[in-house]
Simulated assay, not measured.
Amino acid sequence: MTALLVAERAPEYANVLVIGAGGGVELKALAQAYPQWRFVGVDPSKPMLALAEAALGPLADRVQLHHGYVETAAAGPFDAATCLLTMHFVSIEERSRTLKEIRRRLKPGAPFVLAHMSFPQAPGDRDLWLSRYAAFAIASGVDPEDARNAASAIGSRLPLLGPDEEERMLKEAGFTGTQLFYAGLAFRGWVTYA
């Protein structure tokens, strides 16, 4: 889905910024799908960047990996950016700054695809969504106690926002045309434009 949404507006020889590139799964999938694209990947974890380098194998010659955060990346301008399964770990204050830094590095009209945990945060709603998260994990074979502990940890430790708040932050960072393209229980994905 990410590759398709980026490709809608990215040029043939796109330069793509990947925030939270550790592990390399996203980078590898994008590089395989579009052999002419080049990438700059940023991640604050050196061990995760080592995994990304190993996962990329021969594709690594099209990827520059940087240890750090968005400001570690070149100023761009980039043709597109992605941030998958990362933003829900970032504090609200830092998230706002990060979104602005991503926006600043993109060419006008460039797509930005992001996906992470986001569900309604009103007191009753929040508990319901966390219980759904645990129920889905249990139905998928996770030990019930482990699933409930994970949901509790997510609820107490992650700086989660509701979908409306996420979209407001994107707008405040200067993005336009934001569209929800994915919703799967506790996870949401958006495509938006610089």
Results as ranks from 00 to 15, higher is better:
Ala33Asp: 07
Ile154Gln: 07
Arg104Val: 09
Tyr34Lys: 12
Ser152Leu: 04
Lys28Asn: 05
His67Lys: 03
Val63Lys: 00
Phe78Ile: 08
Leu161Met: 15
Ile102Met: 06
Ile92Leu: 15
Val25Ser: 09
Phe175Glu: 00
Ala147Trp: 05
Asp164Glu: 15
Pro35Gln: 05
Met169Asp: 13
Phe39Asn: 06
Gln32Thr: 12
Ala150Tyr: 05
Pro47Val: 02
Gly174Asp: 06
Gly155Pro: 09
Ala139Gln: 13
Ala135Leu: 12
Val90Met: 10
Ile154His: 05
Leu56Arg: 08
Ala122Ser: 14
Glu26Arg: 06
Gly184Ile: 12
Pro11Gly: 08
Ala139Cys: 10
Ala194Trp: 11
Met48Leu: 11
Ala134Gln: 07
Ala52Cys: 01
Ala73Leu: 02
Arg97Tyr: 07
Gly41Leu: 03
Ser131Arg: 06
Pro111Thr: 12
Phe112Ser: 09
Lys107Glu: 02
Gly124Trp: 06
Tyr13Gln: 13
Ala139Val: 02
Gly57Asp: 02
Glu8Lys: 14
Thr86His: 00
Ala3Met: 01
Gln32Gly: 04
Leu170Tyr: 11
Gly124Cys: 00
Gln179Thr: 14
Glu53Arg: 15
Glu71Met: 11
Lys107Ala: 12
Pro120Leu: 07
Pro11Tyr: 08
Asn149Glu: 00
Pro35Arg: 07
Asp43Val: 01
Phe39Gln: 09
Leu99Ser: 11
Ala153Cys: 04
Pro111Asp: 12
Thr178Ser: 13
Ala29Gln: 09
Tyr34Leu: 04
Tyr13Trp: 14
Leu4Arg: 13
Arg97Ala: 14
Arg103Tyr: 05
Pro47Met: 03
Ala73Ser: 03
Leu106Asp: 05
Glu12His: 02
Ala54Lys: 15
Thr192Ile: 14
Phe112Cys: 08
Ala7Glu: 13
Ala54Asn: 14
Arg132Tyr: 01
Phe187Gln: 10
Ala139Leu: 12
Arg157Phe: 00
Asp125Val: 12
Ser131Gln: 13
Arg104Cys: 14
Asn149Arg: 04
Val70Gly: 12
Ala50Gly: 09
Leu128Cys: 08
Thr2Val: 13
Thr178Met: 04
Leu160Asn: 05
Phe175Thr: 06
Leu114Arg: 00
Gln121Arg: 15
Ala81His: 04
Lys100Glu: 15
Ala110Glu: 13
Gly177Arg: 05
Gly23Asp: 01
Gly57Leu: 04
Glu93Trp: 00
Ser152Lys: 14
Gln32His: 01
Phe39Lys: 04
Ala194Thr: 07
Glu167Leu: 01
Arg157Pro: 05
Arg9Thr: 09
Gly162Met: 05
His67Gly: 05
Met169Tyr: 07
Asp79Ser: 11
Gly24Lys: 03
Thr192Gly: 10
Gln179Ala: 11
Leu27Tyr: 02
Ala10Gly: 13
Arg38Trp: 00
Arg62Phe: 00
Gly22Val: 02
Leu128Met: 03
Asp164His: 09
Leu4Ala: 12
Arg148Ser: 02
Ala150Pro: 00
Ala153Val: 03
His88Asp: 06
Leu160Pro: 01
Met48Cys: 03
Met117Gln: 12
Glu145Asp: 08
Ala55Arg: 15
Pro11Thr: 07
Trp129Arg: 08
Asp125Gly: 04
Arg168Thr: 10
Leu17Val: 01
